[in-house]
Amino acid sequence: MTSSTPYEYSYELDEKKPLNLDSNYVSSFSKYKRYVLWLFSILFILFWLSDFSLVAAEPKVVIIVAVNSGGGGVLKWKSEQEWAIERISIENKRAYAKRHGYGLVIKDQALSKRYSHEYREGWQKVDIMKQTMREFPNAEWFWWLDVETLIMEPQLSLEEHIFDRLDEIANKTLEAFNPLHIATDVAYVDYSQPSDMLITQDCGGFNLGSFLMRNTEWTELLLDIWWDPVGYEQKHMVWEHREQDALEALYANEPWIREKIAFLPLRQINAFPPGACADFKYDLRYFYNEKEHDFVVNMAGCNFGRDCWGEMRQYTQLMQTLHRRWYSMFF
């Protein structure tokens, strides 16, 4: 006991000093604990209430890419080249979306049983649009792109290329270009309405390979009316382009739809390669022109007797040469 006392004593002495010091710190913290806690909880509540976030805000434009549109599923094996086309196409859109802060969704358009009846074939695109609009309720524009497309000028934002100069580039009527010979002057159409849907026409009429829809009540209503069994029951043998033909019929007959649709020149968002619209080889309005730096090329119908993979490779290479910088020779 005696031998241990001095040691114990010194230990206690040693311990006492830092212990005192420590308790001082603790007491000063406990003194302000309430305030710190209050501050923390106020900040916390403000954080949840405000729309402050470190992640980027919701995108204003959402790009929809539909893949597997050529059948797929159990009907057909996807070939190696189809996988490659899909990969290049998606990568192209992903880079574009990232560059301009747009959203991107990839949707599967494989033939499913739900749409397999001839009445229902046109349903899918409409369903995908509806679905995406539900997923992005705050987006302003949706841009639908088929998989066989390439954005050739990714530095152009949609705002500067389209939205900011709609008055200059978009046509509200068909008077200038009307391959389907739809009546142009019909009753009750108020063309001064803002355009909620931007589409293009190719040599055969409306083309929905690349089109834009604004997130409005009108668009939701159109997506609801677009597929209607009364129309399909009567016309499913005639409407070989399904939802495209249905939209043409709606445009022709229903003024409330016509007044919100505007037409862009095909080459604005949907330029064709020389193989498409082959009967109109010399009509420059349809075909991609690298010298004029067309925005998007759409290899429409390339799986009908043309070489999708070849075209895709050709345009990917072309895009690389177009965007080569002088300093790239150093790398």
Partner: peptide, 9 residues
């Protein structure tokens, strides 16, 4: 109205 007035309908 336009839907009902559509000849197809």
């Amino acid at each position: 109205l336009d839907y009902i007035n559509d000849p197809l309908v």
